[in-house]
Amino acid sequence: MNHTGRRIALALLTPCLLAASALSAQEKTPPEEIVRRSRLTFFYAGEDMKAKVRMRLVNPQGKERVRAMTMLRKDQQEGGEQKYFIYFHQPADVRDMTFMVWKYPGKDDDRWLYIPALKLVRRIAANDSRSSFVGSDFTYEDISGRDPEEDTYTLVREEALNGRACDVVRSAPKSERSADYSYKLAWFDRMSHLPLKEEYYDRRGDLARVFTAEEVKEVQGLPTVTKRTMKNLQSGHRTEVTFEEIKYNLGLSDDLFTERYLRSAPPEAR
């Protein structure tokens, strides 16, 4: 190629490069928006959902406990109020227990627990969302989401994780008392918006817990994390969760999330 040719090529190429960099600048979504989209995809997929959830709680010695449950969720508003219904199958000690949560943004949940041996519906104080869910490494907040207003967000970098282009967002609680981590790094898949990995750092800045989404599948066209793990690096304990028989948009009725079905779980929850 002669000089002139090269110059033309460069001239042709330059606007393209400029356009590309302009495009990537436009694509730099604000971290609040990344988190908002992810929250809707991860915690609010579909109008409602049903899944069989299986948790393996593994202690550092490799000893294993299992929690098996059917979970129903219904969104009252996209990104807003939700109702959860959890029916326990395993272990034998909690079999047939049901747990119901009405979740409100910016306010404590309402929680009910039904104890079949006593035919007792018990209200539970729900002011601490950091308590462990059924003895696992997941907190209530990890299961049903944290109020986005409680954190500040910064986009740290863009990075590929297992071949997926991700936005890495750092979130820090506005109030130190509202979380047991000082900050969290989350890898959000740019395609699906799902969090593929989260690292929780303690007050000393040491890595305390790591969340990983090991398997993502499309269910009824909705990207869904079907295998996930939360590992506590300080205790060596970990919890592996699989979601099976996932169904979205079943048209679950509001009636399901009442004392009637808490005391007598509906067939769709069994």
């Binding site: 539970i124 104080a125 729900a126 002011n127 601490d128 308590s131 907190t139």
Partner: peptide
């Protein structure tokens, strides 16, 4: 009156 204090303690 019932309230949780910290992650694993409840007082009623």
């Amino acid at each position: 009156y019932q309230k949780a204090f910290g992650a694993n303690f409840t007082l009623g």
